[in-house]
Simulated assay, not measured.
Amino acid sequence: MEFRDLKKQYQILKQDIDAAMVGVASSGGYIGGKYVTELEGQLADYVGVKHCISCANGTDALSLALMAWDIKEGDAVFVPDFTFFASAEVVAFEGATPIFVDVENETFNISSTDLERKIQSVIAEGKLTPKVIITVDLFGLPASYSEIRLIADRYNLLILEDGAQGFGGAINGRRACSFGDISTTSFFPAKPLGCYGDGGAIFTDNDNWAELIESLKVHGKGSFKYDNVRIGVNSRLDAVQAAILKVKFKAFREYELEDINKVAAKYTTLLQEVVDTPIIPENYYSSWAQYTIKLGSKEQRDNLQMKLKEAGIPSMVYYPTPMHKQSAFSADKFTADFCPNSTSLCQRVLALPLHPYMNDEDVNKICDLIKVINL
Score class of each variant (00 low, 15 high):
Ser315Trp: 05
Leu6His: 10
Asp360Met: 02
Met67Asp: 14
Leu308His: 04
Lys131Met: 12
Val247Met: 04
Ala210Lys: 08
Cys55Gln: 04
Ser121Met: 15
Leu369Arg: 04
Lys246Ile: 01
Phe249Gly: 03
Arg117Tyr: 15
Gly95Arg: 11
Ala25Ile: 11
Ile373Gly: 02
Met323His: 01
Ser26Pro: 00
Leu345Asp: 04
Pro142Met: 05
Leu64His: 07
Asp81Tyr: 03
Val103Lys: 03
Thr292Arg: 00
Ala331Lys: 12
Ile53Gly: 02
Leu270Asn: 07
Ala265Lys: 15
Leu62Trp: 08
Lys72Thr: 14
Ile293Tyr: 03
Lys191Asp: 09
Ala328Phe: 06
Gln272Tyr: 09
Ala61Gly: 04
Lys365Gln: 15
Asn234Trp: 11
Leu115Tyr: 01
Pro353Met: 10
Leu375Glu: 08
Gly222Asp: 12
Val274Pro: 00
Gly140Ile: 07
Ser183Ile: 03
Glu104Arg: 14
Gln15Lys: 13
Gln290Arg: 05
Asn283Leu: 10
Glu361Ala: 14
Ala124Asp: 13
Ile12Met: 09
Val101Cys: 08
Ser344Arg: 15
Ile202Val: 14
Pro322Ala: 02
Glu38Pro: 01
Ser146Ala: 14
Gln347Arg: 11
Leu158Val: 05
Ala210Ser: 14
Gly220Gln: 12
Ala176Tyr: 02
Thr185Ser: 11
Tyr285Glu: 13
Gly220Asn: 10
Arg236Tyr: 05
Glu214Asp: 13
Phe100Met: 12
Thr37Val: 08
Ile366Ser: 03
Ser121Lys: 15
